[in-house]
Structure formats: C-alpha cells, structure tokens
C-alpha cells in the first residue's frame, strides 16, 4: 500500500523532521441507502485510502474533477466531520478519534477559507464581529485589544479601518474573500485549508487574492492545503500537488515535475484539457479524455480510471494499482510504471 514513509519531500521549507500534517490511509464513506433494519446497503466512498503529508511552510495542492473527493479530503483533515478510518496526524498527534473538546486547541491552529464568500460569512454580523469572533473564542485579547487587532488584520488584508462597521453585503466578492482571510488568520493559525478560495472571483481579482495568500504565508509561516479546479493557479501556488480520481490519490509530485512529466494517464489527460491562453499553443485534441466519470457508488474491482484510460489492459481490470515511487518525490498509482 501507499507506504507514507516513502512520501518524503525535498526542496524548500523542509526541515527533515516530522511533517506538520500527515494523513495516513484516510477514508470517508457516506451512507446512501439503508435497509429496513438500518443496515447500510449502499456506500459512497468519497475518500478511499488516501495518504499524503504536508511540511511546515509548504503549499500542497489537491486537484481533480468535481466529485473526486478533494474537498472531502480537505474537510476531513480539519475534522469538520468524523472520518471513517485512517489517521490525521498534526505534529505527530492523531486527531482522527478526538472529540470536540480535545480538538479545540487544534481548531485554533487549523483554519479554513472556502469558495463562496457570500455564504461563508454570516450576513447578520458586521466585519468587526466577524473577525473578532475567533479572537473571543480563542481568548488572549481584552475587548479594546480586540478592536485594535481587528483593525490591524483588516489593514493586513488590504481593507480599511472604516470597513469594520459594515456588513458583508456591502462588499464585492474579492473584498469578502479578504474578510474571510482576515477571519481565518485572526486566531493565529499554522495551517489553513484553502478550499477553492478563488473560484468564485473575477479573473482580475483572483491574482490579488493569490498574491495575498502568498504574502501571508511568507510572513506568518503558514502551511496551506490548496484545493482548486483551476489547474494553472494550483501549479502557480503549490510546491507539491496531489491528483485525485474517484476518491483515490493517483499521483503526487512537485508542481513542475507533475506538469512537465505527468506519470498517470489521468494527470496527462487533465493537463491536456487546460485551455491555454495562447492561440499559438493549441490543445492536443488527440489526448482529450473520452467519456465521463463512472458512478462512484458501484465499486468496481481494479483501477478506477480504466473505463476512460487509453492504455487500459486486462490487468487494470483485475488488480488495483497502488501509489508507488517512480522518481524522487514522485508517486503514481498506475501499472504502466512498474
């Protein structure tokens, strides 16, 4: 199986010590149908046996089509729900079995920014209340100190002091995402889950937010798990990237390596489908993926990608490939690489 001790990194921000976050054999199954007596009869394996790690100060990107389990993986990591099995080790301590009280100190260290800044901010709270809420919960600030801290945070994310008394609906999408960012860094986290943070924003505003995330990472030494479907943005921001397909991690590598030497046929097809903003570089139409995602509910034996894979052989239908090291720091789950 994907032996995680093999998944060692290299390059910047690696100390050689334990990674900040280590996910081992994570699984999250959802019950779709129950029998009359409450026995689960149909299961959706949203995340199935996923292992990876993230070093301190690193950005790990997760990409894949909608429904591949990338968001479920991210939300499992910050324990937004109970997981089915596996370990989520934060600085070596497993969070998987913890209850809410045990989790509280980790909630302060692990924060999140979500896709839709329209629904992730409470419309009934003004900016001051929104940003000071985490300060209240995690303490350490007197009432007047809190106000100063909120204003400091607002200015840090490029908003103004006078914005503090306004409500979310008075802001544009980009400004709302800035408020979300200020709120997420208020408690002084080490790890931030960025779940499609720029997908809902206009092209000209996306770059503002991405630059801000990069600056904050530098300044505060943050570690990011960056989930997005915009592959060129993920490449831009991530040190390493994991590619998911139907609940499985099919390839992990350094950003440049992944984009220049994709090893898994799925990664190859995903990259070929990116519309390149240059009319002189045309899309390789011969490498486009045919067909759509098969139903995730009917668990098939063998490689999940084989129904769409141009290289599928008999073996792919009988035996599921596991994540194997094919180059330093580069892992792929495909029988072609053996």
């Amino acid at each position: 199986m994907s032996d995680n001790s093999l998944l060692e990194g290299r390059g910047q921000a690696r100390t050689g010590k334990t990674p900040l976050l280590e996910v081992r054999r994570l699984a999250k199954h959802f019950t779709i149908e129950k029998s009359l007596f409450g026995r689960t009869t149909k299961v959706l394996k949203a995340v199935d046996d996923v292992s990876f790690h993230i070093h301190r100060g690193e950005t790990f990107g997760l990409v894949g089509e909608s429904g591949c389990g990338k968001s479920t993986t991210g939300r499992s990591v910050i324990r937004l729900f109970d997981i089915t099995s596996g370990e989520i080790c934060y600085e070596g301590i497993d969070l998987a079995g913890m209850n809410e009280r045990q989790l509280k100190p980790y909630r302060q260290k692990m924060q999140a920014i979500f896709q839709d800044p329209y629904s992730s901010l409470n419309p009934g709270m003004n900016v001051m209340e929104l940003i000071s809420e985490p300060l209240e919960i995690y303490g350490g600030y007197s009432r007047s100190n809190r106000r100063d801290r909120v204003i400091e945070l607002l200015e840090r994310v490029g908003l103004k002091r006078e914005h503090a008394d306004r409500y979310p609906h008075e802001f544009s999408g980009g400004q709302r995402q800035r408020i979300s960012i200020a709120r997420s860094i208020a408690s002084g986290p080490e790890f931030v889950l960025c779940d499609e943070p720029i997908s809902a924003l206009d092209v000209s505003v996306q770059a503002q937010v991405v630059n801000m995330l990069e600056d904050l990472q530098q300044e505060l030494g943050l570690t990011y798990l960056f989930i997005a479907h915009d592959l060129s943005m993920v490449r831009h921001i991530s040190n390493r990237i994991g590619v998911m397909y139907m609940g499985k991690l099919v390839e992990v590598s350094f950003s440049e390596e992944l984009y220049t030497h994709p090893a898994h046929p799925y990664t190859e097809a995903l990259l070929a489908a990116i519309p390149i903003p240059d009319p002189k570089v045309l899309m390789p139409t011969d490498r486009l993926l045919q067909g759509e995602l098969p139903s995730p509910i009917d668990a098939a034996i063998g490689c999940k990608f084989r129904s769409r894979c141009p290289y599928a052989s008999r073996r792919c239908g009988e035996e599921e490939p596991v994540l194997k090291r094919i180059a330093p720091g580069h892992y792929a789950a495909c029988h072609l690489h053996e």
């Binding site: 544009s172 980009g174 400004q175 206009d202 092209v203 000209s204 505003v205 996306q206 770059a207 503002q208 991405v210 630059n211 990069e214 060129s232 943005m233 490449r235 831009h236 440049e256 984009y259 220049t260 990116i274 390149i276 903003p277």
Partner: peptide, 24 residues
C-alpha cells in the same frame, strides 16, 4: 492587465502574478 493577471505556463519559474488593483 487581464493577460498579466493569469498564471503563465512557463517552465521552471514561479513568477509573481500582477493583479489589476481595485474592482470593476
């Protein structure tokens, strides 16, 4: 500005994005 604000697919270099400041 629009063309500068999208990441370029150039090998081996992580350039800083150049956003258009402000909003429409």
């Amino acid at each position: 500005g629009l063309l500068r604000s999208i990441p370029r697919m150039r090998e081996g270099r992580r350039e800083r994005l150049v956003p258009i400041e402000g909003s429409p």
